[in-house]
Structure formats: C-alpha cells, structure tokens
C-alpha cells in the first residue's frame, strides 16, 4: 500500500522535474538573449544599415531581406501545401497508390538535411533558372524545404475535423468544395495556424539553405533579384566570423524572436478574422 503511493509520488516528482527542467531551460535561453540583446535595441538599430560587418550600425536591410524571403517562401508554399493537403485528406483515400506516393515523397523530403536543399537551390534556382544569388532563389528554396512540414500539418489539421460533418454534408447534397470552404477549413483553423507557425519557424531559423541561395550581401535589396542577408545568417556571421559582434548577435537574435512572436499574432488574428469566425464550435 505505502509502496504503491511511494512509487506514485516518485513518478509524479520525476514528471514535475522534467517539466520544470524544460521550462527552466526555455526561460534561461530567453533571459540570456533578452538581457544581452536589449541594451542594443533602439529605433536606429532597427532601421539603419549594417556597418563594419555588423559590429556597429543596425539591421534594417536584414529585416527587410528576411521578410521578403519569407514572403516569397509563403506565397509559394502555402497554396501548394494547402492544395496537396486538401487532395490528400479530402479527395482521395489512403489506399490509392497515387496518394501513398505523394505521402512517401513528402516524408522523404521532410527528412532531407537543409544543406542539401541549399545545394539543390543553388544548382536549380540560382544556376539553371538563372536567378543567381537572390531573395527569389532563397525564398523558393525555403518553400521546397517547408513544403513537407506545412503539408503534413495542414493535412493532420483537416483530418482532425470530425467526419460527422462530411457525412452530414454529403447526406444533405452539399457539394464537397462548398462544405470544405464553409465548414471543414474553418473548423481546422487552429491546426492550420499551428502548422503554418511550424513552417515559418523553420524558415526563419534556416541558415544552411540560404547561404548558397540568397547569399549574404548586407545591403538593402532593391528587388527580389538582389541578394539579401537573412537574420539567421547575420546572427551566425556575427557570432562566428566577426570578432566583437556578440552583442549585436544577441540583439539580432532578440529581434528574430520578436519577429516570430509578431508573425504568430498576425497569423492568429488573420485566421480568426477570415476563417475561424465562420464556425461556432
């Protein structure tokens, strides 16, 4: 009897320790970045151009390049991922060879290291397509990279919507596309946003795939065909290659975190405004 409660207490304590450990680690990283980064942050840091390889000056062009790369990436990957996920979850069944082929391809794609995507992007977009080192090349390469995670999570989101609605819709002779648009997609919004954030997080964190494609020119890009340096590459460069760049690396990392947070909030708001509001769960 006491043995049982003792072992229960032990297990319970262990789980608590793990949970606290994870929270502690997260807070520590956050504290480290914020405490080192915050003194450097100012409006001029956010807007002015990079000087002395980043030791001084700001990160204005870098933020713009990052946002442009992300924009290209999302404009290409979201429609593709959404269409593929809808095809997989709504308009085919998992026994078909075709469906299995797509699923397997996506799983393999998801497992490929990002450096390989970088080399592929360089060979295909930069050289074969003639886009050179550019924001466009970088964004397209990132799109290939996030496509599997994005598709998978959107598919899971759609599949998690109860089949009851699909049956009810079919029995009421409501066309499937209408049902999808009116009920299934809105009901799946939380899953869709979670998947989107996963994809954006992966894209923003990426360095290896971008070094060979969008390059690391730190000037303000004039068009999508200019090379542009992403935040993650800037952090990497400051931390590894530029002596005396640590404080600005911290500050840039902090901006990256804030950017992620802002994008998250915007995604939540947009999806709520345009999709989730259409259902009452």
């Amino acid at each position: 009897m006491t043995d049982k409660t003792l072992s229960q207490d032990l297990i319970c304590g262990f789980i608590w320790c793990v949970a606290l450990g994870i929270t502690f680690m997260f807070c520590w990283i956050l504290f480290d970045i914020i405490s080192h980064g915050i003194p450097e942050i100012s409006w001029t840091f956010l807007t002015s151009s990079v000087q002395q390889a980043g030791r001084s000056g700001g990160i204005g062009p870098i933020i713009i390049s990052t946002l442009l790369i992300l924009l290209v990436c999302l404009c290409v990957s979201i429609p593709l991922a959404l269409a593929t996920a809808i095809l997989l979850s709504e308009f085919s069944n998992s026994h078909q060879r075709f469906t299995r082929l797509i699923s397997t391809s996506l799983e393999i794609l998801a497992g490929i290291p990002s450096i390989v995507f970088g080399l592929f992007g360089n060979a295909f977009f930069c050289i074969i397509c003639g886009l050179g080192f550019s924001i466009l090349s970088g964004g397209l390469t990132l799109a290939c990279m996030v496509l599997p995670i994005l598709t998978r999570s959107i598919e899971i989101g759609l599949r998690s919507v109860s089949d009851d609605y699909r049956l009810a819709g079919a029995a009421l002779a409501i066309p499937r596309v209408k049902l999808l648009w009116r009920i299934i997609l809105p009901a799946a919004t939380p899953g869709l946003v979670a998947g989107l954030m996963l994809g954006i997080g992966r894209a923003l964190a990426e360095t290896a795939a971008l070094i060979f494609t969008s390059g690391y020119v730190d000037r303000m890009p004039g068009s999508l065909l200019d090379s542009g340096r992403a935040l993650s590459i800037h952090i990497y460069d400051l931390a590894m290659n530029v002596s005396g760049g640590e404080t600005n690396a911290y500050a840039t990392a902090l901006i990256l975190l804030v950017l992620l947070l802002v994008i998250n909030l915007v995604a939540q708001w947009l999806s709520h405004r345009f999709l989730y509001r259409k259902v009452q769960l």
């Binding site: 049956l167 009810a168 079919a170 029995a171 009901a187 259902v279």
Partner: peptide, 15 residues
C-alpha cells in the same frame, strides 16, 4: 440525396 434524406445515430449538426 435531396430526395432521400438521412438522420444519423449520433446527432451531427454543423458547427
């Protein structure tokens, strides 16, 4: 299906 309606075992109104 417009001519032949269906009610399911588990009530399934739309959300």
């Amino acid at each position: 299906r417009q001519n032949v309606g269906m009610i399911f075992q588990k009530p399934n109104p739309f959300p």
